[in-house]
Amino acid sequence: MSQTQYLFTPPPVYSLPVRGLQARYPVNRIFCVGRNYHAHAVEMGVPVDKANAQPFYFTKAASTLVESGATVPYPTGTSNYHHEMELVVAIGAPGFRVTESDAASLIYGYAAGLDMTRRDLQLVAREQGRPWDLGKDFELSAVCAEIVPIGELDILGSGAIRLEVNGEPRQSADLSQLIWSIPELIADLSKFYHLQPGDLIYTGTPEGVGAVKPGDRLAGHIDRVGGIALTIGAAE
Protein backbone atom coordinates (compact mmCIF):
# COMPACT_ATOMS: atom_id res chain seq x y z
CA MET A 1 0.00 0.00 0.00
CA SER A 2 1.41 3.36 -1.00
CA GLN A 3 1.90 5.96 1.72
CA THR A 4 0.43 9.42 1.23
CA GLN A 5 3.08 12.06 0.59
CA TYR A 6 2.67 15.64 1.75
CA LEU A 7 4.40 18.81 0.58
CA PHE A 8 5.28 19.61 4.19
CA THR A 9 4.87 17.96 7.57
CA PRO A 10 1.18 17.93 8.65
CA PRO A 11 0.37 19.66 11.94
CA PRO A 12 0.59 17.58 15.09
CA VAL A 13 -2.34 16.17 17.03
CA TYR A 14 -3.05 18.63 19.83
CA SER A 15 -3.92 16.96 23.11
CA LEU A 16 -4.32 17.39 26.86
CA PRO A 17 -3.35 15.22 29.82
CA VAL A 18 -6.07 13.25 31.61
CA ARG A 19 -5.97 12.89 35.37
CA GLY A 20 -5.02 9.36 36.38
CA LEU A 21 -4.25 8.14 32.84
CA GLN A 22 -1.21 7.92 30.61
CA ALA A 23 -3.34 8.26 27.49
CA ARG A 24 -4.02 11.84 26.43
CA TYR A 25 -7.23 13.50 25.24
CA PRO A 26 -6.90 14.49 21.54
CA VAL A 27 -8.49 17.86 20.83
CA ASN A 28 -10.73 18.21 17.80
CA ARG A 29 -12.45 21.62 18.00
CA ILE A 30 -12.68 24.42 20.55
CA PHE A 31 -16.05 26.13 21.00
CA CYS A 32 -16.34 29.17 23.29
CA VAL A 33 -19.55 30.60 24.74
CA GLY A 34 -19.89 34.37 24.86
CA ARG A 35 -21.47 36.33 27.73
CA ASN A 36 -22.65 33.46 29.88
CA TYR A 37 -22.53 35.21 33.26
CA HIS A 38 -24.84 38.18 33.85
CA ALA A 39 -22.27 40.33 35.65
CA HIS A 40 -19.67 39.79 32.93
CA ALA A 41 -22.19 40.68 30.22
CA VAL A 42 -22.90 43.90 32.11
CA GLU A 43 -19.20 44.76 32.50
CA MET A 44 -18.82 44.24 28.74
CA GLY A 45 -21.67 46.69 28.16
CA VAL A 46 -24.05 44.12 26.65
CA PRO A 47 -26.51 42.84 29.31
CA VAL A 48 -28.21 39.52 28.55
CA ASP A 49 -31.90 38.78 29.03
CA LYS A 50 -32.16 35.00 28.78
CA ALA A 51 -35.89 35.22 28.02
CA ASN A 52 -35.11 37.03 24.77
CA ALA A 53 -31.70 35.62 23.85
CA GLN A 54 -29.91 32.51 22.66
CA PRO A 55 -26.38 31.35 23.44
CA PHE A 56 -23.77 32.45 20.93
CA TYR A 57 -20.39 30.97 20.15
CA PHE A 58 -17.01 31.65 18.65
CA THR A 59 -14.25 29.17 17.93
CA LYS A 60 -10.54 28.82 18.45
CA ALA A 61 -8.34 26.53 16.39
CA ALA A 62 -6.93 23.48 18.16
CA SER A 63 -3.49 24.92 17.36
CA THR A 64 -4.15 27.76 19.86
CA LEU A 65 -4.09 25.23 22.71
CA VAL A 66 -1.48 25.57 25.47
CA GLU A 67 -1.23 23.48 28.62
CA SER A 68 -1.51 24.83 32.13
CA GLY A 69 1.83 25.78 33.68
CA ALA A 70 3.28 27.27 30.50
CA THR A 71 4.87 30.65 29.96
CA VAL A 72 3.44 32.41 26.89
CA PRO A 73 4.81 35.55 25.25
CA TYR A 74 2.76 38.72 25.42
CA PRO A 75 0.96 38.59 22.05
CA THR A 76 1.57 40.89 19.14
CA GLY A 77 -0.94 43.48 17.96
CA THR A 78 -2.43 44.34 21.34
CA SER A 79 -1.93 46.62 24.32
CA ASN A 80 -4.91 45.25 26.27
CA TYR A 81 -4.38 41.51 26.82
CA HIS A 82 -7.09 40.03 29.09
CA HIS A 83 -7.64 36.88 31.13
CA GLU A 84 -10.96 35.01 31.14
CA MET A 85 -11.23 32.10 33.60
CA GLU A 86 -13.64 29.35 32.46
CA LEU A 87 -14.97 25.86 33.08
CA VAL A 88 -14.19 23.66 30.08
CA VAL A 89 -16.40 20.70 29.12
CA ALA A 90 -14.64 17.89 27.25
CA ILE A 91 -16.90 15.91 24.90
CA GLY A 92 -16.34 12.15 24.79
CA ALA A 93 -19.16 10.79 22.63
CA PRO A 94 -20.79 11.90 19.36
CA GLY A 95 -24.09 13.72 19.50
CA PHE A 96 -26.39 15.66 17.20
CA ARG A 97 -29.64 17.33 18.26
CA VAL A 98 -29.37 15.87 21.74
CA THR A 99 -31.83 16.77 24.48
CA GLU A 100 -30.82 18.44 27.73
CA SER A 101 -31.64 15.21 29.56
CA ASP A 102 -29.19 13.30 27.35
CA ALA A 103 -26.41 15.90 27.54
CA ALA A 104 -24.50 14.15 30.31
CA SER A 105 -23.96 11.12 28.07
CA LEU A 106 -21.72 13.24 25.81
CA ILE A 107 -19.43 14.52 28.57
CA TYR A 108 -16.05 12.88 29.04
CA GLY A 109 -14.85 15.29 31.70
CA TYR A 110 -14.05 18.81 32.79
CA ALA A 111 -11.06 21.12 33.02
CA ALA A 112 -10.12 24.60 34.13
CA GLY A 113 -9.41 26.90 31.19
CA LEU A 114 -8.32 30.41 30.27
CA ASP A 115 -9.72 32.15 27.19
CA MET A 116 -6.96 34.72 26.66
CA THR A 117 -8.18 37.71 24.69
CA ARG A 118 -6.76 40.66 22.78
CA ARG A 119 -9.53 42.85 24.17
CA ASP A 120 -8.74 45.97 22.18
CA LEU A 121 -8.93 44.05 18.90
CA GLN A 122 -12.10 42.26 19.97
CA LEU A 123 -13.86 45.53 20.84
CA VAL A 124 -12.86 47.18 17.57
CA ALA A 125 -14.27 44.20 15.67
CA ARG A 126 -17.46 44.25 17.76
CA GLU A 127 -18.00 47.96 17.11
CA GLN A 128 -17.50 47.46 13.37
CA GLY A 129 -19.71 44.36 13.19
CA ARG A 130 -16.79 42.17 12.18
CA PRO A 131 -15.78 38.68 13.38
CA TRP A 132 -13.79 38.46 16.60
CA ASP A 133 -11.02 36.25 15.21
CA LEU A 134 -8.13 38.69 15.75
CA GLY A 135 -9.22 39.25 19.33
CA LYS A 136 -9.92 35.62 20.23
CA ASP A 137 -8.48 33.04 17.81
CA PHE A 138 -4.74 33.63 18.04
CA GLU A 139 -1.68 31.59 18.97
CA LEU A 140 -1.47 30.28 22.56
CA SER A 141 -4.83 31.80 23.49
CA ALA A 142 -6.68 28.65 24.64
CA VAL A 143 -5.07 27.59 27.91
CA CYS A 144 -6.33 24.37 29.48
CA ALA A 145 -5.45 22.21 32.46
CA GLU A 146 -5.71 18.43 32.68
CA ILE A 147 -9.03 16.79 31.89
CA VAL A 148 -10.80 15.34 34.92
CA PRO A 149 -12.98 12.36 33.85
CA ILE A 150 -16.60 12.93 34.77
CA GLY A 151 -16.76 10.03 37.25
CA GLU A 152 -18.96 11.07 40.14
CA LEU A 153 -19.00 14.74 39.11
CA ASP A 154 -21.88 14.25 36.65
CA ILE A 155 -23.30 17.61 35.50
CA LEU A 156 -21.58 20.44 37.36
CA GLY A 157 -24.33 22.84 38.42
CA SER A 158 -22.44 24.67 41.14
CA GLY A 159 -18.95 25.22 42.49
CA ALA A 160 -16.63 28.15 43.03
CA ILE A 161 -14.63 29.46 40.08
CA ARG A 162 -11.89 31.99 40.76
CA LEU A 163 -8.71 33.53 39.39
CA GLU A 164 -5.81 35.41 40.96
CA VAL A 165 -3.12 37.48 39.24
CA ASN A 166 0.11 37.76 41.22
CA GLY A 167 -1.81 36.55 44.27
CA GLU A 168 -4.47 39.26 44.00
CA PRO A 169 -8.11 38.14 43.43
CA ARG A 170 -9.48 39.10 40.02
CA GLN A 171 -12.43 36.80 39.27
CA SER A 172 -14.71 35.01 41.74
CA ALA A 173 -18.12 33.47 41.05
CA ASP A 174 -20.04 30.21 41.15
CA LEU A 175 -20.95 27.86 38.30
CA SER A 176 -24.58 28.18 39.41
CA GLN A 177 -24.44 31.72 37.96
CA LEU A 178 -24.06 30.46 34.39
CA ILE A 179 -26.88 31.93 32.30
CA TRP A 180 -27.04 28.79 30.17
CA SER A 181 -26.24 25.59 32.05
CA ILE A 182 -24.01 22.82 30.72
CA PRO A 183 -26.97 20.68 29.54
CA GLU A 184 -28.52 23.71 27.83
CA LEU A 185 -25.26 24.54 26.07
CA ILE A 186 -24.65 21.00 24.84
CA ALA A 187 -28.22 20.65 23.59
CA ASP A 188 -28.11 24.03 21.85
CA LEU A 189 -24.67 23.60 20.28
CA SER A 190 -25.65 20.15 18.99
CA LYS A 191 -28.41 21.77 16.92
CA PHE A 192 -25.72 23.36 14.76
CA TYR A 193 -22.83 20.88 14.92
CA HIS A 194 -22.36 17.15 15.07
CA LEU A 195 -20.45 17.14 18.35
CA GLN A 196 -17.55 14.71 18.39
CA PRO A 197 -15.14 13.21 20.91
CA GLY A 198 -12.31 15.69 21.33
CA ASP A 199 -14.50 18.80 21.17
CA LEU A 200 -13.97 21.29 23.99
CA ILE A 201 -16.58 23.79 25.15
CA TYR A 202 -15.33 26.84 27.06
CA THR A 203 -18.51 27.75 28.96
CA GLY A 204 -18.00 31.47 29.56
CA THR A 205 -16.23 33.71 32.07
CA PRO A 206 -17.43 35.53 35.19
CA GLU A 207 -17.01 39.23 35.85
CA GLY A 208 -13.61 40.66 36.76
CA VAL A 209 -11.78 40.19 33.48
CA GLY A 210 -8.81 42.47 33.16
CA ALA A 211 -5.46 43.20 31.60
CA VAL A 212 -2.24 41.34 32.27
CA LYS A 213 1.33 42.30 31.46
CA PRO A 214 4.70 40.59 31.06
CA GLY A 215 5.81 38.98 34.30
CA ASP A 216 2.29 38.40 35.61
CA ARG A 217 1.45 35.00 37.09
CA LEU A 218 -2.12 33.72 36.78
CA ALA A 219 -3.55 31.04 39.05
CA GLY A 220 -7.15 29.83 38.84
CA HIS A 221 -9.22 27.12 40.46
CA ILE A 222 -12.61 25.46 40.04
CA ASP A 223 -14.05 23.41 42.88
CA ARG A 224 -13.85 19.64 42.26
CA VAL A 225 -12.13 20.24 38.92
CA GLY A 226 -8.75 21.67 39.81
CA GLY A 227 -6.40 24.49 39.08
CA ILE A 228 -4.72 26.22 36.19
CA ALA A 229 -1.58 28.36 35.97
CA LEU A 230 -0.06 30.63 33.35
CA THR A 231 2.87 33.05 33.26
CA ILE A 232 2.97 35.98 30.86
CA GLY A 233 6.36 36.34 29.22
CA ALA A 234 7.95 39.20 27.36
CA ALA A 235 6.60 40.31 24.00
CA GLU A 236 8.20 38.68 20.98
Rank of each mutant, 00 (worst) to 15 (best):
M1E: 14
Q3D: 13
L7M: 08
F8R: 03
T9C: 11
P10F: 08
P12G: 15
V13E: 14
L16G: 01
P17V: 09
V18L: 09
V18G: 11
G20R: 03
G20E: 11
L21P: 07
L21D: 13
Q22H: 15
R24D: 07
N28F: 08
F31Y: 15
G34F: 09
N36C: 09
H38R: 13
H40M: 14
V42G: 06
E43W: 13
K50C: 09
K50E: 14
K50N: 08
A51R: 08
Y57D: 12
T59G: 07
K60M: 02
A62T: 02
A62K: 07
A62S: 12
S63I: 06
T64E: 13
L65H: 05
S68K: 00
G69S: 10
T71F: 06
V72Y: 06
P73I: 01
Y74N: 05
G77H: 04
T78E: 13
N80K: 14
H82S: 05
H83P: 03
M85H: 05
V88R: 00
G92E: 11
G92K: 01
G92D: 08
R97A: 15
A104Y: 00
G109Q: 04
Y110W: 10
M116F: 08
M116V: 08
R119L: 03
L121W: 01
L123Y: 00
A125R: 02
R126T: 04
Q128K: 15
R130I: 00
W132H: 13
L134I: 10
E146T: 02
I147E: 01
V148A: 00
V148F: 07
V148T: 07
P149C: 00
I150V: 15
I155V: 15
G159A: 12
G159D: 13
G159L: 11
A160L: 09
L163W: 06
E164H: 14
E164I: 00
G167H: 03
E168G: 05
A173N: 14
A173F: 06
D174R: 04
D174H: 05
S176M: 10
Q177Y: 10
Q177W: 01
I179H: 03
I182T: 15
E184H: 06
E184W: 05
I186S: 00
I186W: 02
Y193A: 09
H194C: 10
L195A: 04
Q196D: 04
L200N: 13
L200H: 06
L200E: 02
I201K: 02
I201T: 03
Y202H: 11
T205C: 11
T205E: 10
T205G: 07
P206F: 09
V209M: 12
K213S: 11
K213R: 12
G215F: 09
D216P: 09
G220W: 04
D223G: 05
D223N: 07
R224G: 05
V225P: 03
L230P: 00
L230F: 10
A234T: 11
E236Y: 11
